[in-house]
Amino acid sequence: MSVFEELRSVRSAKSQGKRDNKAAFFFLLPWLLGVVLITAGPMLASLWLSFTNYNLIQTPDFIGVQNYVRMFNDPRLLNSLRVTFEYVFVSVPIQLVVALAAALVLDKGMRALPFYRSVFYLPSLLGSSVAVAILWRQIFGQGGLVNQALGLVGLHNLPGWISDPQFALGTIILLNVWTFGAPMIIFLAGLRQIPDMYYEAASIDGAGRWKRFLRITLPMLSPIIFFNVILQLIGAFQSFTQAFIVSGGTGGPSDSTMFYTLYLYQQGFNQFDMGYASAMAWLLFIIIAIITAVTFVTSKYWVFYDN
């Protein structure tokens, strides 16, 4: 509060205020330039391009909403949406449950806690990298680590997990779940915010461990859960690297790992159909916006704000 008051009093001195605004503008400049040049400009350009037949080489011609109409008659696009939704709505809940579980365990307070925290967090830093995706190929491939390990316990004639359409998406979901560290850290911070006195009072009233979790931890943590859900949903819809590397850029086998973003990339850079790819990008934008909005609207029924 005092900071705001201080600011207000400073601003009342007019000449100084002007100088401050200038300074603020100056300090904002890098960010502003970034937003305009790297985000807003290209977004506007892609909106325009989505109404054209731009092919990267020739001057784009305006073709109205043709690209948007085409999307609804494109079976591979609809399939890629199905794959993406499956990925998002399976991997995000599992990942968050694992993250919360890990956070609860770590919150108990143990020796070498910083070490465990780092170890669990590490995959988040690596998870969407090319190196790990290549590693994943080696682990789940035909003669990969998983099959060799299963071979040791007498299981043979196993499928190549990434080369069988039944399992390929599963391995990528697993890869995403493995990167539970980032939401875990946020959960940990959230758990620290819950005052111990609630638990003490509940214990005195005879509430068991499970009940305390359900009645205290979950409600108190719900704003954090909400935050993580939003963050992971948006991130998952935009995943690209894992599918691109694990499937060798094809989205295969049999389109089973054809993420929406991967199909978009193929349309743009393999088919040179930038107009269509731009339209696809806007559809994804709209889908993410709707799903985020729905999450926000429903949040008032399950998110509990303390104050």
């Binding site: 400009g41 506007l44 350009a45 325009w48 020739q58 784009p60």
Partner: peptide, 10 residues
């Protein structure tokens, strides 16, 4: 940017 993106008359 728009011009840069579109001005590609080969």
């Amino acid at each position: 940017i728009l011009l840069a993106g579109c001005g590609t008359s080969a």
